[in-house]
């Protein structure tokens, strides 16, 4: 199991890009942190999710 935004999910082995494709996140509006480090945008496809990972997806909204 791993955690994304605090929710426990069984996604080990899937890539970050595959996970995101099945969600409503707009890839142009997000930043992804994995175990305390930012995941470079170019590496979403090759970043494999692993048991024990703690991931936070920040989805920006407009206004400032």
């Amino acid at each position: 199991m791993l955690k994304i935004n605090g929710e426990s999910l069984d996604l080990a082995g899937k890539s970050l890009a595959e996970y995101l494709a099945g969600t409503d996140y707009d890839p142009k509006r997000i930043a992804v942190e994995r175990n305390g480090e930012i995941v470079p945008k170019a590496l979403y496809a090759e970043t494999l999710l692993a048991d024990g990972d703690s991931i936070e997806i920040v989805s920006f909204v407009g206004g400032g």
Binding site: D26, K28, R29, F60, V61, G62, G64
Partner: peptide, 8 residues
């Protein structure tokens, strides 16, 4: 910024 894509 104001724009969400620019923020990201």
């Amino acid at each position: 910024f104001d724009d969400a894509e620019a923020k990201a």
